[in-house]
Design a protein around this nucleic acid. Structure first.
Length: 579
RNA sequence: CGGUGAUUAGCGCAGUCCGGUAGCGCAUCUGGUUUGGGACCAGAGGGUCGCAGGUUCGAAUCCUGCAUCACCGACCA
């Protein structure tokens, strides 16, 4: 490709709206342009990268035995009503009507469509297992799109769905997909971790996320330094090895006027936050009339409630809902900030770490007062101990091996065992050997193709721009001719080398603009092309060309006649897994 | 959805408090000088000041409403 005939679209200045480095560089390098909040055009350079990622994903999916299909973006609402998600999915599901007032949705995911296909096309258990995938546009009307394509509303996703006669077969395909994902992200040059994950809105009973480690990530992941335990913080657990101290002096009441937070109360009482109990009021499960009870959750004052784990406690609202201040005042007789388990009239859940506290302080259920020297059992006879808190840096690994560490991650893929959630709701059944019709076991497996690109940039950049992993680069080689208009030999050599590289099937961006060298170097480095060849008068005098490695910055001169072989060798270093 | 802020040339911004001929830098075009890391000089083009209404002799500026965008939070494969 000649730069003079291409749309480079690089920006010299930083766009005002971009807060994270990948968003900024994607705009500056001319990969994407925003057309509305969370909705982007992919410019030529960006699209080349997108195709690179797609092709690697496609190769590995095919290798793992999945079959490619393409499903519609616009889907009849009818299917979503059948699965029950038309009501359940919420405002993130974009709904629309056609001219005949029929209801449709923009697909945020494709379980409904694939299940409708499977129940019609799969006629015999002998066709199983079957794994179908597509690489296709999704639309989710996110509350707050941000960070460019990292959390867009319209995005490209590879989604695969597998169908099985039994759970053992599902487990096999789940493992195959897990392995395929590991190969994909390795080939893409990403530093990633598979972690145990919550199943969220998709449902199902077992799931792993593939997280790319990056400070800009929106997820917190937890892993052990003594084993291969790794989990999203939503799921992560720990072992509490503290021992509850013996109860001491009798419970007493202390005035804490104006104290509304744990820290304020602790300071007023002359205690550390970890000696004060944090009491939160949440809603229980709704009954058929929509009524619910209020439940108290107790944590150590310096620890955080984990809403996902708490929502899974039987009898609690899930997703977890907090009580309003009005509900709390009416029920407890005091406001948040003065709440505590002593004489609380409802169900009390105590986090496992908080259960190890003794002689602690807590709210008195009376505005402006706290209780001190409180002890479980003695002062609070009825309570349940559960796992309610977020794990913290340095906590023990739940397998007893090593300690936990927290890092930020970008979720680029997730694999789920769905079980029969959709096949039962939508009657996707096959006959078993006894002639009995049974719902198929299902799995689903997603990769955020557009998000992968942002994640790669978060991990691979410097002050000059993007440094693409070889496998994702929009071009393998940047060929820069210094002032070809002034020196005919430069022009001649550059043109010849360009033709040779093209002939070899190496993707070259040949900067033939006759710009000042600084402009061309800056663009090549901003776009992140891994190999930069410069043709200039200086080294031509010795019969040489200049080579620069974008990643290491190392330069070397190569004889003109050796350059094509040299580059062929360089381009071959793509870390393709041949397993 | 709550909080905060923004919207002026293709991009980045000033001007708004205190109403009076719409500006700066970059980019673009022309001419010249330069020529190995985002050149310099001279000139030119480019604007319904987000939209609608109001106040005023006069509105980018004041008032009202709306829209869009961003950031923080809540939420989220």
């Amino acid at each position: 490709m000649r730069t003079s005939r291409y749309l480079l679209s690089t920006l010299k200045e930083n766009p005002a709206e971009a807060a994270v480095v990948s968003h900024r560089l994607m705009l500056r390098a001319g990969l994407i342009r925003q057309i509305a909040s969370g909705i982007y055009t992919w410019l030529p350079t960006g699209l080349r990268v997108l195709h690179k990622v797609e092709n690697i994903v496609r190769e590995e999916m095919n290798r793992a035995g999945a079959i490619e299909v393409s499903m519609p973006v616009v889907q009849p609402a009818e299917l979503w009503k059948e699965s029950g998600r038309y009501e359940k999915y919420g405002p993130e599901l974009c709904r629309l009507k056609d001219r005949k007032h029929n209801e449709f949705v923009l697909g945020p995911t494709h379980e409904e469509v694939i299940t409708a296909i499977a129940r019609r096309e799969i006629k015999s258990a002998r066709q199983l297992p079957l794994n179908l995938y597509q690489i296709q546009t999704k639309f989710r009307d996110e509350i707050r799109p941000r960070f460019g394509v990292m959390r867009g509303r319209e995005f490209l996703m590879k989604d695969a769905y597998s169908f099985h006669i039994d759970h053992a077969s599902l487990e096999q395909t789940y493992q195959d997909m897990y392995d395929a994902y590991s190969r994909i992200f390795t080939r893409l040059g990403l530093d990633f971790r598979p972690v145990e994950a919550d199943t969220g809105a998709i449902g199902g009973n077992h799931s792993h996320e593939f997280q790319v480690l990056a400070d800009a990530g929106e997820d917190t992941i937890v892993f052990s330094d003594g084993s291969d335990y790794a989990a999203n913080i939503e799921m992560a657990e720990t072992i509490e090895n503290a021992v509850r101290p013996a109860a001491g002096a009798a419970m007493d009441k202390a005035a804490t006027p104006g104290c509304h937070t744990v820290d304020e109360a602790a300071q007023a009482l002359g205690l550390e936050a970890n000696s004060v109990l944090k009491s939160l009021i949440v809603r229980g499960e709704r009954d058929e009339n929509g009524k619910y009870e209020l439940i108290m959750c107790c944590l150590k004052g310096n620890q955080e409630l984990n809403e996902v784990k708490t929502g899974k406690v039987p009898g609690l609202s899930n997703p977890l809902e907090f009580a309003t201040d009005e509900e709390i005042a009416a029920y407890c007789g005091s406001h948040p900030g003065s709440l505590g388990p002593v004489n609380f009239k409802g169900r009390i859940l105590v986090d496992r770490a908080a259960d190890k506290m003794g002689n602690f302080a807590c709210g008195a259920n009376e505005d402006g007062y706290h209780l001190i020297n409180v002890n479980w059992d003695r002062d609070v006879p009825n309570y349940e101990v559960c796992d309610l808190r977020n794990v913290e840096e340095g906590d023990l690994s739940p397998d007893g091996k090593g300690h936990l560490h927290l890092r930020k991650g970008i979720e680029v893929g997730q694999v789920f065992m769905l079980g029969t959630k959709y096949s039962e709701a939508m009657q996707a059944v096959v006959m078993d050997e006894n002639g009995k019709s049974i719902p198929m076991e299902m799995g689903c497996y997603g990769i955020g193709v557009t998000r992968v690109i942002a994640a790669a940039i978060e991990q691979h950049h410097d002050e000059r721009g993007i440094i693409w992993p070889e496998s994702m680069a929009p071009f393998a080689v940047s060929l820069i001719a210094i002032k070809p208009g002034r020196c005919p030999q430069v022009h001649e050599v550059a043109e010849k080398l360009y033709a040779q590289l093209e002939e070899l099937g190496i993707e070259v961006l040949y900067d033939d603009r006759d710009e000042r060298p600084g402009v061309m170097f800056a663009d090549a480095e901003l776009i992140g092309i891994p190999h930069i060849i410069t043709v200039g008068e200086k080294s031509l005098a010795n019969g040489e060309l200049e080579y620069k490695d974008r990643r290491s910055g190392e330069k070397q001169n190569i004889k003109i006649e050796d350059m094509t072989a040299f580059i062929q060798q360089k381009v071959k270093t793509d870390p393709i897994i041949t397993a």
